[in-house]
């Protein structure tokens, strides 16, 4: 473990908590893409299947349980409890256009063909694009609640910090996992224009609005 990965995991945890609190406190999931949350739940489910038979550390196991539980709790809030506030008119990204390419790619480019490894590879590719329905929804509505922009910033920062963690591990432990690094860079790049808007607008106290 290194400080970059720890900060990344904390950002990730903060993002998930901020989203849950936003929906719970405002009793509304307006502006939140349920489709992205479905993809995230799928990412954690396929990535953490080893939760039950490989023990890395208490921290590792606890975080996996938290990510799994919170992602399903978020789905419950969006699609069951506050279903009436779910903005399905704007959450229209065709996630099959993400799922199918990720399945194909994970069969073409993977470290090995064991079921756990294939699921892990699939989850890495899917995580890279899981935010697209949310970013698409924000572009359709042209704006996002400030709390939602904080959620997106923390979520984007988590994988950006993981890239720093991979650079650090490359030089200190000769560790490198090309699949995770390439997908992580793509994932972070997808947030680039959002980061720009967030820093130039939200941090200056303005609303998060896309230029018309």
């Amino acid at each position: 473990m290194n400080i970059f990965r720890l900060l990344g995991d904390i950002c990730h945890l903060v993002a998930i908590i901020v989203l849950l609190l936003k929906i719970w406190k405002t009793r509304s999931c307006a502006g939140i893409s349920g489709k992205s949350q479905i993809l995230f739940a799928l990412v954690y489910t396929t990535r953490y299947v080893d939760l039950f038979f490989t023990y890395v550390s208490l921290y590792n196991s606890v975080m996996k349980v938290i990510f799994l539980a919170s992602s399903y709790a978020t789905l419950y809030l969006i699609y069951v409890k506050f279903k009436a506030t779910y903005d399905f008119n704007h959450d229209t990204f065709r996630i099959e256009f993400l799922l199918i390419p990720c399945v194909i790619l994970s069969l073409l480019i993977t470290h090995d063909y064991s079921p756990v490894e294939l699921l892990w590879t699939f989850s890495i590719y899917l995580e890279a694009v899981a935010i697209l329905p949310q970013l698409f929804m924000v572009s359709k509505t042209g704006e996002a609640e400030t709390i939602t922009s904080h959620y997106l910033f923390a979520l984007g920062a988590y994988r950006a910090l993981y890239i720093v963690n991979w650079i650090y591990r490359y030089y200190t432990e000769s560790f490198i996992d090309g699949i995770a690094v390439v997908a992580g860079i793509i994932q972070t790049i997808l947030y680039a224009d959002f980061f720009y808007l967030y820093i130039t607008k939200v941090l200056k106290g303005k609303d998060f609005k896309l230029p018309a």
Binding site: D9, S57, W120, N165, Y170, F175, D177, A180
Partner: peptide, 10 residues
């Protein structure tokens, strides 16, 4: 530069 056998990242 290999990748580790065990996945220790979240």
């Amino acid at each position: 530069k290999a990748k580790p056998a065990q996945k220790d990242e979240l």
